[in-house]
């Protein structure tokens, strides 16, 4: 029966890890804004291949795609 102590220790450790994760998430401000992330996640990430030379010509392609 004393194997119970091992189980208890393990389960307590697991729950302590979750508690730690929760405390970290509150501290790091993940509860400050409960709305914007829900919108942000829906945005598609576009490839940022030509970040350097976008200035002039590429705009037209963009327009036609629309």
């Amino acid at each position: 029966m004393y194997v119970m102590f091992l189980l208890m220790g393990a389960s307590l450790m697991a729950s302590l890890i979750f508690l730690g994760a929760y405390i970290w998430s509150v501290r790091s401000g993940q509860f400050d804004d409960k709305y914007t992330p829900s919108v942000r996640i829906l945005f598609d990430d576009k490839k940022k291949s030509k970040k350097s030379d976008t200035e002039n010509d590429s705009g037209i392609n963009e327009e036609e795609k629309k």
């Binding site: 307590l12 729950s15 979750f18 508690l19 929760y22 405390i23 509150v26 501290r27 509860f31």
Partner: peptide, 17 residues
């Protein structure tokens, strides 16, 4: 508000265990 979240988290954790 952050503190309140921490307080609830701790109380909930203790309550369950």
């Amino acid at each position: 508000e952050k503190k309140l979240y921490l307080k609830i988290g701790l109380a909930g954790f203790a309550f369950g265990n």
